[in-house]
């Protein structure tokens, strides 16, 4: 598959799931403080620059298509969106809820436009045909990994892999995907600190769901710190 797709009218754009710089965590590869733009803003000549995520090449010039920050790494100009929907990419770690099932497939809500499919062959255990609900019922939570993403963004998830499992205890909080970078911190420092402070097991999934498990007091304290962090980010607003 090519790294960009040509649309009907000849414009070139990168679908979200193939973009190099579109980390679900957004600010993970944040560099210098950069310019804030609105959709439609001109970003200069395209000569010598590639159009990255949120950028279109039109008539020899680059144009922002998203509201966000400009990232210029020398060869590619991309927009790091301020707010964005979660779009799954292969190998993303996600937390999902079982939303429905058939005889041999679970449908998992992973907070993306489409439910992901979890076939029984990639599920947590073997059951007879028709026994999906006896292994995992509607409303149960799972930690899984995105295995495949179609061009239409519908995806297949797997539970085969280290640490992937059904979530039976603790609490799941939702964090705006673009704030995940702040939560994790440089080299995972902030997250490590949070885990130590609260003595909880904390798993931050790429779709913005955060699983916190441990003693009750730890869970409550982790929740408070998460909330403080996200309020903080909101009050600082876009200048963060």
């Amino acid at each position: 598959m090519s790294a960009s797709m040509v649309m009907k009218d000849g414009r070139v754009a990168r679908p979200d799931n193939m973009s190099v710089s579109n980390d679900a965590g957004g600010p993970r590869n944040q560099g210098r403080a950069s310019l804030l733009v609105a959709p439609g803003e001109d970003l200069g000549e395209s000569e010598g620059h590639e159009a990255g995520h949120g950028v279109l090449e039109m008539d020899g010039r680059l144009r922002a298509t998203k509201h966000g920050r400009v990232n210029d790494n020398g060869t590619e100009i991309a927009i790091e969106p301020l707010r964005t929907a979660y779009i799954p990419r292969p190998s993303d770690l996600v937390i999902g809820y079982v939303e429905g099932c058939t005889n041999n497939i679970w449908f998992i809500d992973i907070g993306a436009p489409f439910n992901a499919i979890l076939p029984m062959s990639l599920g947590p255990g073997k059951a007879a045909f028709g026994g999906t609900r006896s292994i995992m019922d509607i409303g149960e939570a799972v930690l899984c990994r995105v295995q495949e993403v179609e061009e239409t963004h519908s995806s297949v998830v797997t539970m085969k892999g280290m640490g992937l499992r059904k979530i039976r205890s603790g609490n799941i909080e939702q964090v705006d995907p673009h704030l995940l970078g702040r939560l994790i911190g440089k080299g995972g420092k902030a997250l490590r600190q949070l885990k130590e402070d609260t003595d909880c097991r904390i798993i931050v999934a790429d779709n913005g769901r955060v699983w916190i498990d441990g003693e009750f007091d730890g869970i409550v304290s982790a929740r408070d710190q998460l909330k403080a962090m996200s309020d903080d980010a909101k009050s600082i607003g876009v200048d963060a």
Partner: peptide, 24 residues
């Protein structure tokens, strides 16, 4: 929308400890 089972369990645990999910 579907009701996550974990949410119900967590809300019950909070109630036992006289807490609410948003700290109120």
């Amino acid at each position: 929308p579907i009701v996550p089972q974990l949410l119900r369990a967590h809300l019950a645990e909070l109630a036992e400890n006289d807490e609410r999910h948003d700290g109120r």
